[in-house]
Amino acid sequence: MRRPRIGVFKFTSCDGCQLSILNLEEQLLGLLEFFEIAYFREAADLPPKRQYDVGIVEGSISTEWQRKEIMEIRDRTRFLITIGACATAGGLQALRNWANVSEYKRKVYPSPDLISVFAISTPVSEHAYVDYELWGCPIEKNALSETLVSLIIGKKPGFPVYSLCMDCKIKGIPCLLVSRAEPCLGPVTKTGCGVLCPSFGRPCYGCFGPRDGANIDSLLERFRNLGMSQKETVLLLDKMNTYAYRKARIEEAH
């Protein structure tokens, strides 16, 4: 029986999530027994294929070429997985969605007219149906290998969708918000990183994106009671998952 065929694709991004695939180290060699990596430009000089069983997509959509390309890839792929904040939430570069892109272009490029990009950076899911999303900036690499193994055995991949708070308690890390009055996004953020920042004594800055049903407005009010201005609290949300946190706040309000 032929091994399922994987294609790895990159859009607007830093390459960190693709690198996480290569950072699987020995697990990667194990995966290669069960999958054929048929297209992965960073690692192999192989031509594109007409059909893939699994498409792994990194990066947000921010140009016309990318918008067309992702729809093409969706057509040729049975199961589409997006990996990382850029693909799932538009990434840090989505900060431009709330600004004036012509200004941005002028600041960076002497001849801005030669540069053609969308005014906004959006997640893949705004353009094509996504079968599974792995959030994180970067993703947690073991989440990817677990997802691929689940696919082989026909199991639905599943990861905890509660907030970081649960995992901080399990690890015995005293709550930064409660005990140190620090503005931690943990309560409104999906767990999955291994509570890295709290382990390093710093508040969560939300690189895994909003958890479902998070009460973001309430948390921001708490931060304001700690002395932060309204503007400062919004700056906390406007990072790698800015688009997703803002969207979650709008949906929460309805």
Partner: peptide, 23 residues
């Protein structure tokens, strides 16, 4: 695709800089 880091860093507090530029 350009991401315009130098533009969106303007107006950010200094402690965002190492986390943002890493990306």
């Amino acid at each position: 695709a350009p991401r315009f880091f130098e533009s969106f860093l303007e107006g950010r507090p200094f402690d965002d800089v190492p986390d943002f530029t890493a990306r």
